Every structure is written in structure tokens, then in C-alpha cells.
Computed example of a mutant assay.
Amino acid sequence: MIRTDELKGVIAKNGYSQSDVAGMIGVTPKTFYEKMKIGVFGSDEIQIMIEKLHINDPISIFFAKE
């Protein structure tokens, strides 16, 4: 399960909006918001976010335990 609260914080810390990140991973903002709501992203999307948002500890965000 993705910790969307943590991901939102990282997005803001990097000065991006969720729409900006949607563009980075190649989806529409609407699709990005839906993915955030259900907490599911593809591995390619996760990899792009790790690189572009300079996420040092991706496990705590993308592979958090319930």
C-alpha cells in the first residue's frame, strides 16, 4: 500500500503539483488522482517518481505495510 500522505509531502517539497507528477509519469491528472485514491502505481511509474522526486527511501512510501 502506498502512503499517499508521504508522497504528497515529497511532491510539495520538490515544488511540484500532482498534475506535474502526472505528466512526468505519462498519465492524465485525473488518472493520477485516481491512482492516489486507490494507492496503486505501476513499477515504471514508481521508478520515475523515485528518480524525478529524489526519493531516498522509496520503501517507506511505496511499499508501506498496512
Results as ranks from 00 to 15, higher is better:
E51R: 07
K30F: 03
I50G: 05
I48W: 01
S19N: 13
F62Y: 02
D44P: 01
I61S: 03
T4K: 14
G26H: 04
F32K: 01
K37M: 12
Y16E: 15
M24S: 04
V27Q: 08
T31D: 11
I59T: 13
Y16K: 10
I61G: 02
V40S: 13
T31C: 09
S60E: 13
A12N: 12
I46Y: 00
K37A: 14
I11M: 08
E45Q: 14
S17L: 11
H54G: 03
K8A: 12
D5Q: 11
L7K: 01
D20P: 07
I46S: 03
V40T: 05
E45L: 06
S17G: 12
K8Q: 09
I25Q: 00
I46C: 04
S43C: 04
Q18K: 07
K30M: 11
L7S: 05
L53F: 10
P58T: 04
N14D: 11
K65L: 00
M24E: 14
E45M: 08
I11T: 07
K8N: 09
S43G: 06
V21G: 02
I55A: 09
F41Y: 02
I38L: 07
T28F: 01
L7T: 03
V10Q: 12
F32Y: 09
K30D: 14
L53T: 03
K30L: 12
E45C: 09
Q47A: 15
T31F: 00
D44F: 04
D5A: 09
F62V: 07
Q47R: 11
Y33V: 04
I61D: 04
P29E: 13
V10F: 12
K35C: 14
I38C: 11
F32W: 04
E34Y: 02
S43L: 13
I55H: 01
K8L: 09
M24C: 06
A22V: 04
V21R: 00
I55N: 05
S43R: 13
D20M: 02
I50L: 10
S43P: 02
A64V: 02
K30T: 08
A64M: 05
G23V: 01
K35H: 11
K65S: 05
I61P: 00
K65A: 03
I59Y: 06
G23K: 11
M36L: 15
L7A: 05
N56M: 09
E66S: 05
T28D: 14
N14W: 09
I59N: 12
F63M: 12
